[in-house]
């Protein structure tokens, strides 16, 4: 099987908060059409990496690049970096330097969407409204930046109908179609998690960043979530970057796993490789590398 071209490339990413190095010189690649998992013990810096990728933090050092379309655009990376521009957009794709873009442009232009570890839905708005807010940019354009929309032109009504159809598609996929008119805040926890994924997908992302999507889900919901993530990867030309503690999710669906500990990458490979990596086991057990066998014997692994 040919290796898929890279979609996201993180190089020398460092994030310092005062004296604390949350992420130190991290580099990894997420490939197109793959599910890349970012795992590590609590406090390893996974969410910090997410916040850097999605523009919520400005990294202290490093480069984060995303390519749309033609993989040959990667050759332009050095030139673009030197030029000091944020992005290069051509007819056959685009190259985006995420560390240079503010958060809302990371979503709007670079098409990188995210969910949050602690769910952030618009709880007082209905499920359908949540999904329409996610389509803000195209609808704003269709409404002539509100000027035509206030006059009630037909083209805006058509655009809104199309947006509702897209929302319905995602509601059907996440099993929320019957609850479309209910307030998001009234949904049960698992449904809120799915809605947040649906909302992120309504921005038409090329890369979807999921921050612990299985947290707090029961095994059945967790299995349904796996299905949903696989559907997103296989049918919607969206690659997935995943932070997850639930190993059943990580090992089952990931194509590629990156392991962080104390902000440093300690392993990078297929799920099988990572599962048997001494350093990873040591980090998860919280002991030094050479003590792993002793501890494993102790706990009966």
């Amino acid at each position: 099987m040919a290796v898929a071209p890279p979609l996201l490339r993180v190089e020398h990413l460092t994030m310092r908060f005062g004296g604390l190095v949350a992420v130190g010189d991290l580099g990894f690649t997420a490939r197109r059409g793959e599910i890349t998992a970012l795992i590590g013990p609590n406090g390893a810096g996974k969410t910090t990496v997410f916040n850097c990728i999605t523009g919520f933090y400005k990294p202290t050092e490093g480069r984060i690049a995303v390519v749309h379309g033609e993989a040959g655009l990667w050759d332009e990376l050095e030139a673009l970096t030197r030029r000091g521009d944020r992005h290069l957009t051509l007819a056959n794709g685009g190259l985006f330097l995420l560390e240079r873009m503010p958060d809302h442009l990371v979503s709007r232009q670079a098409k990188v969407a995210r969910t949050f570890q602690n769910i952030r839905l618009f709880s007082g708005m209905t499920v359908l409204e949540n999904l329409l807010v996610a389509q803000h940019a195209p609808l704003m354009l269709a409404s002539g930046f509100s000027l035509l929309g206030v006059l009630g032109v037909a083209s805006y009504r058509r655009a809104e109908r199309a947006a509702i159809d897209k929302a319905k598609h995602w509601l059907a996929l996440t099993g929320l179609l019957d609850r479309a008119d209910e307030p998001a805040g009234a949904l049960p926890y698992g449904a809120q998690r799915r809605l947040e994924i649906a909302r992120a997908m309504c921005t038409d992302p090329v890369l979807l960043c999921l921050d612990e999507p299985a947290a707090g889900l029961n095994p059945r919901e967790s299995a349904a979530l796996n299905e949903l993530i696989l559907t997103i990867r296989d049918r919607h030309a969206t690659s997935v970057l995943l932070i997850e503690h639930d190993m059943s999710v990580v090992m089952e669906i990931s194509d590629h796993v990156v392991v962080l500990d104390y902000g440093v990458k300690i392993a990078d490979g297929t799920p099988e490789e990572v599962r048997n990596d001494q350093k990873v086991i040591a980090a998860y057990l919280g002991v030094a590398d050479d003590e792993v066998e002793a501890v494993e014997a102790e706990v009966g692994l």
């Binding site: 999605t54 919520f56 958060d103 809302h104 442009l105 979503s107 709007r108 969407a113 995210r114 949050f116 952030r120 839905l121 618009f122 807010v133 996610a134 803000h136 940019a137 909302r199 992120a200 921005t203």
Partner: peptide
Amino acid sequence: IACRSLGI
């Protein structure tokens, strides 16, 4: 924050 993550 959710707004910003959705490109608003």
